[in-house]
Design a protein around this nucleic acid. Structure first.
Length: 542
RNA sequence: GCGCCUGUAGCUCAGUUGGACAGAGCGGAGGUCUCCGGAACCUCAGGUCGGAGGUUCGAAUCCUCUCAGGCGCACCA
């Protein structure tokens, strides 16, 4: 698939530079296999009517052997029809080297760090975290396959007030198990899991910490609580099929002097200043609404203090690009973090902040109330136990991240038995089943089979669809949109089921069967590749 | 009050840096199967793209205003 390159060259000959050449797969067959509006896009620049430019371009394209014909249509579309021979050739290429073909090298080894989930270690993960996890993991996989060197990182907020409260909550419950009265912190965490930790502690340390003041033993309780929470978080994520390369602790940023070093640098540049007994960051210099407090007048740092340092540290580590996946409730935070990046002398383009909208959890149309403090909520773990990981991920990945999402547990279970994930997985299982039924002889060296026997509409359509995976892939990478993969897979599965219903693979003349098996193999590889981006299993049987 | 996100078929959602008559799944109606897995396939019905202006060859997409829902506007995290 090198149409884009060819078009670029033609444009160069004509003396035009187009920033990005858009290729579309038209809905209507008569509009060609591939179509491009590029002539219309440059019409203004060249000051010629689009159709005239289109004619000129299409004349050049006509000479190339891959195309059967090239038409100019409508206001100036260039519609390209492939020669079947070209399709067979590309299909063969896919069969011979699936990895090289399906994994376009776009990133060229650039390093990119993706930070996601980063849930506070003060309670179990909920469904919103699950959405971030699914999106982050899929995006990571996508970029990795596109030739980026990806690091998946989880940032742990293990410093500050929230974990202080976690420790105190555990401490209170711990005292309680000995019948010792300690007032439960007003904003403490009231979930059952806190009691679980307290009971564990009772086993482990007996009454060692009884009758002490909390601030004397806080460190112990915080560490214990945080570690236990992280264990659970990690376990739940693993169960969900999401893994991280690195877990960065906020506390470590303090202990290793990273926060201090970063602040010194900013101070030197004049971007930190003192006012009213506090230390401020000059965010307004870089487009934020107001300057932001970094160290409060009581001497304690704000959350922002370490967040600045965290981003500084990421940049220090030399990534070419950074991606932060945040819950949409943090959107107000974007200008100040972008300001930090700029203050550190880096281009804000380096940092992509992807907002993932909130998830409303419903059961049969009725909202399920969620409140972490009160300890009433349904966890990610409970949802994946009831609904299943594949289904849950698939639901998250069939929506744009910034769309609001009502996740109805009952609907999720019902719908999935009738369609979305299983539909795609079923196509995969079907192909596997065909392979199981086929005689071994037939399956040998499929790339050498006579692909020109694939002449039926359904076959040609299916071949094109598998080849157009690359167009979808490129767009998904460019826009950081893994959900495009999900939609593509559904379309591919649909075309496969259609083909399967209409044409028999096995039991034909040997060569036709082999050609169709080859086609199945190609679909098989694309499905497997796509599902692996989504982190959804590709079952051989189901 | 200010800012961000969302509003597309009865429901859940896509719609490729503005492109050809607006798409899919579910639900509804009707059909397909002697055979590789029916968790399948095919057909039909169904939308003034929240509303009003504007920009242009061309708008679901961009701009302005407006309505509705969600979320933010701390020396909280």
């Amino acid at each position: 698939m090198q149409i884009r390159k060819e078009l670029e060259e033609i444009l160069k000959e004509i003396g035009v530079k187009a920033p990005f050449i858009e290729l579309e797969v038209p809905r209507v067959n008569s509009h060609g296999d591939i179509s491009t509006p590029v002539a219309m896009m440059i019409a203004r620049q060249v000051k010629k009517p689009p159709r005239e430019i289109a004619e000129q371009i299409s004349k050049h394209l006509c000479c190339l052997s891959a195309y059967e014909r090239v038409e100019v249509a409508g206001p100036g579309f260039i519609n390209i029809f492939f020669k079947p021979e070209y399709l067979y050739e590309q299909l063969k290429k896919l069969l011979i080297s699936p990895e090289e073909t399906l994994r376009m090298n776009i990133g060229n080894g650039q390093s990119i760090q993706i930070e996601f989930v980063s849930a506070n270690p003060t309670g179990p993960l909920h469904l919103g975290h699950g959405r971030g996890a699914a999106v982050g993991a899929a995006l990571s996989n996508l970029l990795e396959k596109a030739g980026y060197s990806v690091e998946r990182e989880f940032y742990i907020n293990d410093a500050g007030r929230q974990v202080w409260l976690l420790g105190e909550s555990v401490f209170a419950r711990y005292c309680e198990t000995f019948g010792v009265d300690y007032p439960f912190p007003e904003e403490g965490y009231r979930g059952e899991y806190i009691k679980e930790i307290a009971n564990e502690l009772k086993e482990e340390v007996a009454e060692e910490y009884i009758n002490r003041r909390y601030d004397e033993v806080a460190e112990f309780f915080i560490d214990y609580g945080v570690n236990r929470m992280l264990q659970w978080i990690r376990r739940d994520l693993e169960e969900f099929g999401v893994f991280f390369d690195r877990w960065q602790s906020e506390k470590t940023l303090y202990n290793e002097g990273i926060v201090q070093k970063c602040h010194e640098e900013l101070r030197k540049k004049g971007y930190l200043y003192d006012k009213d007994g506090a230390v401020w960051f000059r965010a307004t210099e870089f487009g934020d609404d107001k300057d932001r407090v970094v160290i409060k007048s009581d001497g304690s740092p704000t959350y922002f203090a370490s967040d600045i340092a965290y981003h500084w540290y990421k940049l220090q580590r030399g990534f070419d690009q950074l991606v932060n996946i945040w819950g949409a409730d943090h959107h107000g935070y974007i200008p100040r973090i972008k300001a930090v990046i700029k203050a550190l002398g880096q281009s804000e383009e380096k940092l992509h902040i992807l907002l993932v909208q909130m998830v409303n959890l419903l059961r049969a149309g009725r909202p399920v109330q969620m409140s972490k403090r009160a300890g009433e909520f349904i966890t990610l773990r409970e949802v994946i136990e009831e609904v299943g990981s594949d289904i849950t991920k698939f639901i998250f990945l069939t929506r744009r991240p910034d769309s609001h999402l009502d996740f109805d547990i009952e609907v999720a279970k019902k719908e999935s038995s009738e369609n979305p994930v299983y539909y795609v997985q079923y196509a995969y299982a079907r192909i596997n089943s065909i392979f199981r039924n086929a005689e071994e002889e037939l399956l040998k060296d499929l790339e050498k089979s006579d692909l020109t026997l694939l002449r039926q509409d359904e076959e040609l359509t299916l071949i094109k669809k598998t080849l157009f995976y690359m167009i979808m892939f490129e767009g998904a990478v460019r826009e950081l949109e893994p959900h495009r993969v999900t939609f593509y897979l559904q379309e591919l599965a649909k075309l496969f089921h259609s083909f399967y219903t209409k044409h028999r693979v096995l039991g034909n003349k040997t060569e036709l069967s082999r050609a169709r098996l080859a086609l199945c193999k190609a679909v098989f590889m694309v499905l497997r590749e796509g599902l692996s981006i989504l982190g959804v299993t590709a079952p051989e049987k189901m």
